[in-house]
């Protein structure tokens, strides 16, 4: 139910144009929504540092070709959003953001329904809806920081 509302928000946002206020509320809602999955993700993703995370974890069984492709696309997002989407600059952070919000935003970019967008509409049109949604889920499941002690 709340998920449906959030996706609607993606479409209605450009009409309301209250873009700086609404997302904050939705971020909170999104965190609540995906809390269960997030916690499962975090327990896997909070090692001492990134490198140990890479070598230290068991694999989920049977990553499909689609999932492998999503991982590969996600790597390229890092060029603007930092490794694993963990850099917060004028360009937004991706890691650990609510999946439903990112899904809605990516689809809205693709449909030219995001106000004040610059490159993202041009990029989002390079992927299928399914890929965009999977990318949102992928980044959402990452922890905010690779290493709690680091500057990032």
């Amino acid at each position: 139910m709340r998920l449906a509302q959030m996706i609607k928000w993606g479409a209605s946002m450009q009409q309301s144009r209250k873009r700086y206020i609404i997302p904050v509320g939705l971020l909170v809602a999104g965190l609540c929504l995906s809390a269960g999955v997030m916690i499962a993700g975090m327990t896997l993703a909070e090692p001492e540092n990134e490198y140990e995370a890479v070598i230290g974890e068991a694999a989920p069984e049977g990553a499909t070709p689609f999932e492998q492709r999503i991982q590969m696309i996600a790597m390229s997002c890092a060029a603007c959003h930092g490794t694993d989407g963990r850099l917060q600059t004028a360009i937004p952070l991706l890691a650990a953001q609510p999946a439903a919000v990112m899904r809605a935003q990516l689809l809205a970019f693709k449909q030219d329904q995001m106000p004040d967008a610059t490159v993202m509409p041009r990029l989002a049109k390079g992927y299928t809806d399914e890929e965009l949604e999977a990318l949102a889920d992928y980044f959402s499941a990452l922890s905010r920081k690779a290493n709690p002690g680091s500057a990032l």
Partner: peptide, 25 residues
Amino acid sequence: NRRQSLKLMGAAGLGTMLSASGLPV
């Protein structure tokens, strides 16, 4: 299910993917 699997995959980091895809680790 797919979403959860992607989340787990992302959460666990990149390396895990590869053993999943049959790579020698």
